[in-house]
């Protein structure tokens, strides 16, 4: 693994991907903090892991399924009562202006 150092963090792009609308000065401060943390995190890149398979789960079991049997759903009133806005059985959101 090459010793890649993340010098440029496109923080505007990252914040956009994470859907967090931050002010420019906040963005700059996060960019700086991420830089410090990532420099430390870059240790993982320098580490020799040749021939090692990445793991994502501690106990390596497989095939956890449920049978195709219906179970009760939630009462709609309860579901919608938590919503910031709801009407006629629907959740209501502002208009969708774009598709990504």
């Amino acid at each position: 693994m090459s010793a890649f150092m993340p010098i440029d963090i496109d923080i505007v792009h990252v914040a956009r991907l994470a859907r967090i609308d931050l002010h420019p000065d906040e963005l700059e401060s996060y960019r700086a903090q991420l830089g410090v943390i990532l420099e430390h995190a870059a240790k993982v890149q320098a580490y020799d892991t040749s021939g090692v398979e990445p793991i994502s789960h501690p106990l390596g079991f497989t095939n956890a399924f449920r049978e195709d049997e219906p179970a009760p759903s939630l009462p709609r009133d309860e579901v919608l009562s938590a919503a910031p806005e709801a009407r006629d059985g629907y959740f209501v959101a502002p208009p969708t202006m774009e598709t990504e």
Binding site: A18, R19, I20, D21, L22, A82, A83, P84, E85, F91, A93, P94, P95, T96, M97, E98
Partner: peptide, 21 residues
């Protein structure tokens, strides 16, 4: 959208971004 805080914006996307910020 479905629960918790909402900070409204003009669009869904803006609403999500502001709420999360």
């Amino acid at each position: 959208i479905r629960y918790g805080l909402r900070v409204p914006g003009d669009t869904v996307s803006e609403t999500m971004g502001r709420t999360r910020a």
